[in-house]
Design a protein around this nucleic acid. Structure first.
Lengths: 204, 204
DNA sequence: CGCGGCTTCTGACAAATGTCATGGCGGCGC
DNA sequence: GCGCCGCCATGACATTTGTCAGAAGCCGCG
């Protein structure tokens, strides 16, 4: 028998992380060698313990799972990464895959299933939850140009156009044009619903 | 020794629920008698299995934890309820307490700690996470009137005033007045930032 | 009973926003 | 090189929103 798979677990919810560590530890071919509660901590722990697979939560303080995965790809090429998430948006999956992530699963799977997927990933294969994958395909690519997306994101907190223009170093008129065309592309009647739509698709 | 505490676990994330069930089951004075993934399912399971303590996630499909707790208080007076949540907003805590919930904890606590709190709650005492409590005190009470809150909530998805008026069966002018006064009370410069603020405080 | 607060409405005005046409600039593909 | 597309801007216009004053009915509290 080969040596066990060394795991890093990163999740800001101690309850989940601890429970997960306990359950995965029961599998005799898996061993949790490090845990982290924040993005930066995950990176530090990964470098210190050099796990075979890093299981990362998508939403963490400091840096999200995809960001951590991106850094890890450069720092620790031998370490496979996978994302576990509560509510995954289509856009996140795309970002994750281009960051070299090899597994993407929702928290609705069982621990049993997660263990299998960890083995799959460790073997060098990919695994993406079928439902999330079909969502991503259905959502398609963002129809927004770079500036449209940027301006839309800046308008996410409900700031007036003048404020957005200031933050983007653009003319207010230009901002209104971008917002208008972004809303048209998304089929929204105003920029606020446009923001919601884009966020739901994970495009911002 | 007394008989073990019978638990109901409700959380839509199978991974967490299963892991939690396993960990809490290790405590020899606790036993998980039922699990549920949705609000309605939690209610049905509670009535069927009559647990001593119901551990409810705040965000679940169908009906949220507080709603479930409210129903349970009437249906199963002998059953203590507690809420476990990822990101608890101040307003939620208030709603939960008035629904008769006896425990309110974030998912950042350890399983060890959760087990102790379950015992505390089962003994008839209350437990509220200190940090969440101080947040709630700092946030204070909502300054909004019932209608202001209602209209603000309807405007949450960015719908235009005409749409909100239709849904609330109010005159557009009235809606604008409510939104205006709500924004003024919250110190926001428009209704969209007002919505964000109110949501952050848990007032909507 | 009167006072104050909440609810609901109207009307009017100012400001912000959405829409459209138009134009210049720069890059990319054929 | 020419055309297309994205980027940035301006100006004008219609629409939507925000703000304010005023007014009526209802309810609870002292």
């Amino acid at each position: 028998m080969t040596s066990p798979v060394r795991l890093l677990l990163a999740d800001d919810e101690h309850l989940i992380r601890g429970a997960l560590a306990a359950l995965l530890g029961l599998e005799d071919d898996l061993v949790v060698v490090a845990e982290a509660a924040t993005g930066p901590e995950a990176i530090a722990m990964a470098i210190a313990h050099r796990p075979d697979v890093a299981v990362l939560d998508l939403q963490m303080p400091g840096a999200d799972g995809v960001t951590v995965a991106t850094l890890l790809r450069d720092e620790l090429p031998g370490c496979r990464t996978m994302i576990v998430t509560g509510h995954g948006r289509p856009g996140h999956l795309k970002r994750a895959l281009s960051a070299g992530v090899r597994g993407f699963v929702p928290k609705t799977v069982s621990a049993q299933r997660l263990a299998e997927i960890i083995r799959t990933v460790h073997a060098g294969n990919r695994y993406v939850d079928p439902e999330l994958a079909s969502d991503a395909i259905a959502a398609g690519d963002s129809p927004l140009t770079a500036r449209e997306a940027e301006v839309l994101e800046l308008s996410a907190d409900g700031a007036p156009v003048a404020e957005i223009a200031r933050r983007a170093s653009l003319s207010p008129g230009t901002v209104r044009n971008y917002l208008s065309s972004a809303a048209a592309k998304l089929g929204a009647e105003n920029r606020h619903t446009a923001v919601r739509l884009a966020q739901a698709k994970g495009w911002v």
